[in-house]
Nucleic acid binder design. Structure first.
Length: 309
DNA sequence: AAAGCGGGGTG
DNA sequence: CACCCAGCTTT
């Protein structure tokens, strides 16, 4: 909530209605989302706005099935919108609900297994008070967020402690059960920050699969491990870049690699400043760099680099 | 069923 | 460092 609220207000101001969002360029949507992460959500939100103004003729769908058909809307979101906005009898199961139910009922089925997802959804659906679905759902989630918290919950004062299987069996700390693996991949990024005599630079848009789709970054040379300047300037990617943009001098900006941690990747990053006399009509003005949507890793660099301030 | 996708916070 | 988060889509 803390992290998302300012973004919410920026969005509402920029896009007061669904038509405004649908008609906006993707670049603007991503720029407003910059720093939030999970950028596919921004793209899906944008696509969904277009579906609603198009196929749904501007009328927001109000059945579970239709909600579920929207890009980026899965069981949780469809159930939440359905119950809160349209009084549909659909139970939400988010992280809070998993935690509360697994503890009170003493359920050790992993919450991120197929069996667990099904079991918890069924239980939540059975418990749902359909005379006030939205309120019930929000209250359940809020109780989990405020009281049945992940670590060191105050069970001694909890209203459920007479019935909570986990509390009575002293297993609160072990529930919910989650299957975890997700090994973290290490990657080595070398960003070539080109600075030309007429104060221009180069940004590329990330396309295809992987992280940060559609966001911008400096020309990237990725390597299998940390590399020295000598190794860098002998890579095909750098040779090509240097030729195209006329790099005359290369200076390492950060002696110690910046480690940018995503949930599933650690990015060991060096920023190299490549000075050029002439970008041959390529590139963008340095003063315009701030208009592009960039990942936090790149944004942090830009904020720290005097030439770009 | 598993993998991939961000960034920030807590203890 | 381990774990958590108002999940969903793709493979």
């Amino acid at each position: 909530m803390e992290q998302g609220t300012p973004y919410y207000f920026k969005f509402i101001e920029a896009f007061p209605n669904v038509q405004a969002l649908a008609n906006a360029p993707q670049e603007q949507v991503l720029k407003l989302w910059q720093g939030l992460g999970y950028y596919s959500r921004a793209r899906n939100l944008h696509i969904t706005a277009q579906h609603i103004t198009g196929e749904f003729k501007g009328e927001f769908p109000k059945t579970y099935k239709e909600l579920l058909s929207l890009k980026g809307v899965g069981d949780y979101t469809a159930s939440a919108i359905g119950s809160i906005c349209f009084d549909l009898p659909t139970a939400v199961v988010d992280g809070n609900v998993y935690r509360i139910l697994s503890r009170i009922y003493g359920i050790s089925t992993p919450i991120n297994s197929s069996a667990g997802i099904k079991e918890f959804k069924q239980l939540a659906q059975k418990l749902l008070d359909i005379s006030q679905s939205g309120t019930f759902n929000q209250a359940t989630m809020e109780f989990g967020a405020r009281y049945c918290v992940p670590q060191n919950p105050d069970c001694l004062h909890c209203i459920f402690n007479k019935d909570c299987v986990a509390f009575l069996s002293n297993t609160v700390g072990e529930l919910p059960v989650k299957i975890k693996k997700q090994k973290i991949k290490k990657r080595y990024f070398n960003y070539i920050v080109i600075v030309s005599a007429d104060k221009k630079t180069i940004l590329n848009q990330r396309t295809g699969k992987g992280i940060w789709q559609q966001l911008y970054e400096f020309p990237l040379v990725e390597s299998a491990s940390e590399i020295s300047e000598n190794q860098l300037i002998n890579t095909d990617d750098y040779v090509s870049l240097s030729k195209i943009h006329g790099i005359t001098e290369l200076v390492l900006y950060n002696d110690v690699q910046v480690v940018h941690k995503l949930s599933h990747q650690h990015l060991y990053t060096k920023f190299w400043i490549g000075y050029s006399n002439n970008l041959n009509n390529n590139g963008i003005k340095i003063s315009e760099v701030q208009d592009f949507a960039v990942p936090v890793l790149v944004s942090n660099f830009i904020s720290s680099f005097p030439e770009f301030k």
